[in-house]
Structure formats: C-alpha cells, structure tokens
Design a protein around this nucleic acid. Structure first.
Ligand code: SF4
Ligand code: SF4
Lengths: 142, 142
DNA sequence: ACTTATTCAGACAATTTTGTCTTAAATTTA
DNA sequence: TAAATTTAAGACAAAATTGTCTGAATAAGT
C-alpha cells in the first residue's frame, strides 16, 4: 500500500500548494483516513528522497521540496515501491535477458516500456490539479 | 507466484502436446525447479477450472484439457490470480467509479484496458510454440 | 489382493507485507 | 527554561502470502 498511501498524500499536499507553511501528517492521516504512524513512515522515505521537506515542532509538518511539475509518477513510484517497480519481469527468472528470453519477454517488455513512458510523463502537478478543480476525489465515497 | 509458476508449468506442458499421455507433476517440478507440493496445489486449481485434466496412479499426471489455441493469457491469469487481476484499480478507493474518479482513474483505466486487450489475444499455443522452437527458455540460466 | 505411483486435500510453518506503538529528537511559543 | 507540538526511528504485532509436509484417494501393474 506504500504507493497508494504515498501518492494520495502527495496529491493531497500538492493540491494545497498555494497555501503557506507545512501540512501536518496528523491532518493528512485524518483526512485521508490512513494510520498516522504508518503514513509517517511512508512520508519519511519521501522526505529522505527529497520529494518532501519536513519540519518538526509546532506548526511543523511536511511540504513539497520541489515544484510538483517536476515530480513524475515514475519517480514517486520508484521511491515508494523500489527501483525494480517496472523492471520486474513477468516470470522473474534470474539472470535472463535479451539473449535467452522467456516466452513472454517481448510481450511484457512492450507493455512495461509503454507504461514507463506514460508514468514518466505524468506529473504530480497534473494529478493534483484535478483534485483542486474538484474533478476528482482522494477519499472514499461515503 | 501463482501466476509465474502456473504459467511456466502450462507452457511446459503445452510445449509437449504432441506427446501422448500425461506429464507428471513431479517431473515438471524437477525440470522447472519449483516445489512439488506447491506446484501441485497450483495445478489443482487449473484442473478445477478445466484448463488441465488430471489422472492419478502410475503413468498419471496432468494434460491440457483444451486446445492451447483456445486458452488465453487473460484466462490463465484470472484463474491463477483471481478475477480481480485487471479490475484492481490503482488507488483502490472503495466505492469509486466513473462518477467520482480519483486522479489516476482515466490514466489507469486506459492502461488496464490496453493490457487486458493484449492479454486476451495471446494464447498458450503462441507462447509454448516459442518454447518448442527453442527460441526461448523456461528455466533459469545457469 | 498387493504394491507402487500418482494426484487430492488440508493442516502446518516460514516469510513478507502491513500496520501499531513507544520513545526520542527537534522546534516553537511563552 | 519549560511546555506543547510535531516529525524521526525503530521495536513490536497482525495479517497475508508463500511454501512444506502428511495422509488419503485413485489407478495401474503384478
Ligand atoms: S526473459 Fe524477459 S520477461 Fe522473461 S523472465 Fe527474463 S526479463 Fe523477465
Ligand atoms: S477512481 Fe478509478 S482508478 Fe481511482 S480508485 Fe476508483 S476505480 Fe480506481
């Protein structure tokens, strides 16, 4: 769920990027209905990877460390789910590659390349704009 | 790993479809280096869903229950991983849909539809033919 | 009938993922 | 400096996934 929770939080944070100051993790966890401590841990990794900046103490919290236009979906997923996110192959045979491919190699490589392409051209800004315009939602329907 | 092991076994079995009789699960597990009991359980579900036919006793084993040309990758994945394989949405918010989509809905739906399309047009026959021609391999490189 | 080979079924165990809790460190305000 | 607020870090727990084992059922050969 790292990706799900992390992305939702990032979109939530990015959606309020015109507001000054930090957004507290407690507030995010309540609004998005995610366990506070678990979310904290996830956001920590985003902080460590310089997607977010954090500030302790009263009025502290987290804020975007870079412009959301420069944060791609691919980048976020790599951080949240590991670098192997798209390189994982379908059959997962060790030590394989172009030389001696498995039956689904070509098929699968085509799909992953397409996806990777799409994911690297979608930015946090685009996603959060939809939230701001009220076009979409981040929380569960009641 | 159900999908990985199941597909590998199916391709292995389909690759020898001109040979008479059953292929024993023991043999498959040894050749593909998969735990015998675990593989047995996976192949059982394929048998229950009439992809395979099984035969107990000496010279028993499993065999394809239908022509591999009529078994699609999509069908195999549905059985091995559950019907929700492609319907699972990216953010997994409960009770969502077209009316109130999340930020990645359109993006994600496009990807899953494309994949589903591709997966439903690839058959076991095509995949196993590559194995037979020696073009690809099913086991790990040494 | 007996033995052997095989799948079937389900209990059990190990591992990974997911989530919770406690304590520490930092920062602000008074 | 003291108190309040908030993230950081990591131990711990629960749940899901992955894998193992044992015994039963079935079929074939002798
Ligand atoms: S051959 Fe390609 S798809 Fe197949 S296991 Fe290797 S990397 Fe993955
Ligand atoms: S809106 Fe679409 S992509 Fe988003 S959670 Fe719902 S079904 Fe999934």
């Amino acid at each position: 769920m790292n990706a799900v929770y992390g992305l939702r939080a990032l979109m939530y944070i990015a959606a309020q990027r015109d507001q000054e100051g930090y957004v507290s993790i407690r507030k995010i966890s309540e609004d998005l209905d995610i366990s506070f401590h678990f979310l904290t841990k996830i956001l920590q990794t985003l902080t460590q990877h310089h997607i977010l900046h954090s500030q302790r103490g009263p009025a502290g919290g987290v804020a975007l460390a870079k412009a959301p236009e420069q944060v791609t979906l691919l980048e976020m997923l790599y951080i949240l789910e590991g670098e192997g996110y798209f390189s994982e192959c379908f059959l997962g045979l060790p030590g394989c590659g172009e030389q001696q491919p498995c039956p689904v190699h070509d098929f699968w490589r085509h799909i992953t390349l397409t996806m990777k392409e799409k994911f690297s051209h979608t930015t946090l800004a685009e996603l959060s704009d939809k939230v701001r315009s009220g076009e979409v939602r981040l929380v569960s329907c009641t």
